[in-house]
């Protein structure tokens, strides 16, 4: 297999020519999203350039603690994004969500790099950063769906929730049906992806491995391993995210504390 072909700066600039089509459609139909599209494109370019430069250094140095620190920074950014997307108060659940994300990423990542790839250093930058990023990205999506579903369901069916407490349910017993529905909502996309992968589209990691110069069979093995890692990571992070945030989101009487929501309803 050949080494991957690098893209020169001029060639990269040529990629921007493809923007003629979306911009043309936006102008033709007067879609009111020109401003945000330009901002998004600039942000994407600048963010990726900066991350590319940083990762270049990270890969060259390949220092264990620096790699771990970078992963933790990624987890922290994902943490803030989840809490904001769930309409919850950052100060109340940021720490439990951080722990849930860290566990959901660290457990499958360690097994992937240590057990499957047999790397002597499980935080080897070449593997830990991209694989960790893929697992974390899916954990982020799953946590947003799972945690938001959990709290919105309890808030919208408060009467049924309180009835279960009145009937003698402990807090874990009363929240279990909601955790079940939230987990289902969070895991369903990954399950659907696993069921159709390879048929509907060529998955990202497989494409990357092939572009990197490996054969399709190697690429498929990587893809299977990453899919299982992602599924495992999302299950861990959603279960932990719900469990850990419950401790700081309910009153000692077992009631959902309305102040945990950013736009709280009255008592």
């Amino acid at each position: 297999m050949n080494e991957i072909v690098d893209i020169g700066l001029w060639q990269l600039a040529a990629a921007y020519l493809l923007l003629v089509f979306p911009f043309g459609i936006i102008l033709w139909y007067r879609v009111p999203m020109m401003g945000e599209t330009v901002v998004a494109l600039v942000r994407m370019t600048v963010q990726l350039l900066l991350v590319g430069l940083y990762l270049q250094v990270l890969f060259q140095l390949n220092i264990l603690w620096l790699n771990a620190l970078w992963l933790l920074v990624m987890v922290a950014v994902a943490d803030v994004s989840i809490v904001r997307s769930c309409n919850l108060r950052l100060m109340r659940i940021a720490l439990p969500v951080f722990l849930a994300l860290a566990a959901g990423t660290a457990v499958p990542l360690t097994l992937f790099t240590g057990l499957i790839l047999r790397r002597p250093n499980v935080l080897d930058a070449q593997y830990a950063i991209p694989i960790g990023g893929m697992i974390l990205g899916n954990c982020l999506r799953a946590d947003i769906v799972g945690i938001r579903t959990f709290y919105e369901l309890i808030r919208s069916t408060e009467k049924a929730f309180l009835q279960s407490l009145a009937e003698g349910a402990s807090l874990p017993e009363a929240t279990r049906p909601y955790a079940r529905k939230a987990s289902q909502a969070a895991l369903a996309p990954t399950v659907a992806t696993m069921a159709t992968i390879g048929l509907v589209s060529l998955p990202g990691m497989m494409t990357g491995v092939i572009l990197g110069g490996a054969g399709p069979v190697t690429a498929i093995k990587y893809q299977i391993a990453i899919m299982i890692s992602i599924f495992s990571g999302t299950a861990i992070t959603v279960a932990l995210g719900i469990r850990l945030t419950t401790k700081s989101s309910f009153t000692p009487y077992g009631l959902l504390d309305p102040t945990v929501f950013r736009n709280q309803s009255k008592k």
Binding site: T157, K159, Q163, S164, A166, G168, P177
Partner: peptide, 15 residues
């Protein structure tokens, strides 16, 4: 104490 009480609301939500 909740284990000593039976409560039925006006418009019960049976889940």
């Amino acid at each position: 104490l909740r284990g000593r009480v039976a409560y039925v609301g006006q418009e019960p939500d049976l889940g």
